[in-house]
Structure formats: C-alpha cells, structure tokens
C-alpha cells in the first residue's frame, strides 16, 4: 500500500515533468482571447503596428556596423531561408559557454563577437527591430524547443520558477495561466500565458516590447521581485514557457492589449 502510493507519486511527478499541464488539444494562443478588432489588427500585415519594427529590422539586417564592418546579411545571406524556424527553437543552450540564451541574447552575441559592435540595450528600438525581424521569418511555424541534454537543467529551473509562489500576492504563474485561464480579471481575460507573440505590440505600451517586458508586467502585478533582462532565471523561464506552448505557431509580431 505505502509502496503503491510512493510509486503513484513518482509516476505523477514524472508525467508532471514530461507533459505540459495544458494538453496540446486545449492550447490556445493569447490572440484568441482578444477582441475581433485586436485579432484583425494582428492578422493584417499593414495594420499591425509591429510590422514597423520588422521593416526597421530588415534595414538594420543589411547595414554594416561595428569595427568588423559587416552586416548581419554579410554572413547570413538570405534571411527568409537562413532564419526560417530559428525563433521557434529559442531559447537554446549556447554551445560555447553552456548558458541558456534567448533570441535577443543570440542577436547581441553576433553584434559583439561577429560585428565587433557594442551590444544593444534591452528594449531598445534596434534590438526590438532585429528580434522582430528575425522572429517574423518563423511566423506560422510551431514552437519546438529542446529540453534534452544540457537544456534540461535550465528547463527544470524555469519550471520551478513557474510553479513557485512569488511576491506579496503569493501567487504562481500557474495560479493565473493554468488554473484560471479563460476567466475575466477585471477588464482582461486571462490567457494561457504563452510566449508565441513576442516581441509583441501592446496597445498599453503603445510600442513593441519583449517577452521579458511582458513577464515583468506580470511580476509587477503580483508585487514580486523584478528579474533583470539578462537574469538567467528569466531566460530559463522563457524556455519553460516555450516548452509548455509546444506546437503553437509563432505570431511575432503579435498584437495584444
């Protein structure tokens, strides 16, 4: 009897780790919780304000910068081919230093080590533009991050953060995005909290913003300690978010309230 319970607990623990709490059949992108107007704004490539950043990113992609005098395009040639599907695989573990990096960090790594240019600040117009441009090349492709091998430890760290309670409100991410999605919270409907739209244009920001900025807004809401943009815990959390959204199409640049 005791052993049975123990076995059950072990099994439960195992499945908890291997399958997302929201099954694939119930996965819903955040956009599906928005109004018809919002959905129209996202799906019309001209009305979508995020496309302003994508276009700026395309120009930056072709502009040589830094002491190496090279443009992103000098090494990566045709963006639509070279970058297709890349955003759907991020965050990844960087081979050289074994750190988990998101798309923004990957782009900055190319800036500093390949172009010999200073890193771009988090949430700067240029970093958002390049990230939006790179992510846009994967639009419609299903999120598919790897959590095996060296990624596993980061995944565990992200999952632990997700289910831990934070802040003065003592709430976990799951309290809202797994146990109460679809419910109205004042004027907003809580979504499943997926990362597939980011960088996204939020009407409230009146600008494009990164996934890190969106997560910080949630942390602020529960009066939790802020995570800096380059905090490895944040990237680990982004990895966990991508995994639990496995299969959802990349929407970047999405449009949100």
């Amino acid at each position: 009897m005791r052993i049975g319970i123990l076995l059950l607990a072990l099994l439960a623990g195992n499945t908890f780790a291997q399958t997302p709490a929201i099954p694939a059949s119930e996965l819903r992108s955040g956009v599906s919780f928005g109004s018809a107007e919002l959905r129209a704004m996202q799906s019309d490539d001209f009305a979508n304000p995020g496309m302003l950043w994508v276009e700026r990113g395309q120009k930056l992609w072709q502009t040589p910068v830094g002491s190496a005098g090279r443009a992103c395009a000098s090494c990566h040639s045709d963006a639509s081919l070279a970058l297709k599907g890349v955003a759907a695989r991020y965050p990844v573990v960087n081979a050289s230093d074994r750190r988990v990096i998101d798309l923004e960090a990957r782009i900055n790594a190319c800036r500093t080590s390949q172009q010999k240019a200073p890193a771009l600040a988090a949430e700067s117009e240029d970093l958002l533009a390049l990230t939006a441009f790179v992510a846009h090349q994967s639009r419609g492709m299903p999120l598919a991050v790897s959590i095996s091998d060296s990624a596993r430890a980061f995944f565990d760290q992200g999952r632990d953060f997700y289910y831990a309670r934070h802040g003065q409100m003592d709430l976990s991410c799951a309290d809202c995005h797994e146990h109460n999605w679809g419910r109205k919270l004042l004027a907003e409907t809580i979504s499943q909290g997926h990362p597939n739209a980011y960088p996204a244009y939020r009407l409230e920001w009146q600008s494009l913003g990164s996934l890190a900025r969106r997560i910080r807004a949630c942390l602020f809401g529960i009066r939790a300690q802020m995570l800096a943009s380059d905090d490895p815990q944040l990237t680990a959390l982004e990895l966990f978010l991508a995994w639990r959204a496995d299969g959802l199409p990349v929407e970047a640049p999405g449009v949100r309230r």
Binding site: M169, L171, N180, L185, L186, F220, G221, I222, R223
Partner: peptide, 12 residues
C-alpha cells in the same frame, strides 16, 4: 489575491 493582482496589472 488574483483579483487584487489584477487591479495592479490593469489600468482600468
């Protein structure tokens, strides 16, 4: 707690 947090999240 969720509702209180919601008030801080939204600027309604």
């Amino acid at each position: 707690r969720i509702i209180v947090a919601g008030a801080a999240l939204a600027t309604t």
